[in-house]
C-alpha cells in the first residue's frame, strides 16, 4: 500500500496517545515530562506531513517555532522540578498534592 498522508497521521496519533499514556501512568514528574515531549513531537510530525502534502511551508515553520518554545519550556520546567525537589526531596506527583482542599 502506497504510503500517504493518513499513514503519517496515524503514526502521529499513536505517538500522541503513547505520550498521553506516559503522562497518565508514570508517576515520576520527569517521565511525565517526557510524555509531554512525545505529544509535542507527535504534533510536529502531523504538521510536517500536512505541510508536505498540502504544499505549504507554513507547517514546517510552525514546527520550527514549536521546537523553540518546547526547548524554552523544557528548560523552565526542569528548573521548576529541580527547585521542587530541593524543597520536597521528591519528584513524585503523589508527594506533591498540597494544592487541594
Amino acid at each position: 500500500m502506497k504510503v500517504g498522508l493518513e499513514h503519517y497521521l496515524l503514526i502521529s496519533a499513536g505517538l500522541f496517545s503513547l505520550g498521553l499514556l506516559g503522562v497518565i501512568l508514570r508517576r515520576n514528574l520527569l517521565v511525565m515530562y517526557m510524555g509531554l515531549e512525545l505529544m509535542l513531537n507527535a504534533a510536529n510530525l502531523a504538521l510536517v506531513a500536512f505541510s508536505r502534502y498540502n504544499k505549504n511551508l507554513d507547517g514546517q515553520l510552525m514546527v520550527f517555532f514549536i521546537i523553540t518554545v518546547a526547548a524554552a519550556e523544557v528548560s523552565v520546567g526542569l528548573a521548576l522540578i529541580v527547585a521542587l525537589y530541593r524543597r520536597r526531596q521528591s519528584a513524585h506527583v503523589e508527594d506533591l498534592t498540597s494544592l487541594k482542599f
Binding site: M32, V93, L96, T97, K100
Partner: peptide, 11 residues
C-alpha cells in the same frame, strides 16, 4: 475530585 494529584487531573 480535587485530590491535588496532577495525574488525576490529567486523567
Amino acid at each position: 475530585v480535587l485530590t491535588g494529584n496532577l495525574q488525576t487531573y490529567a486523567f
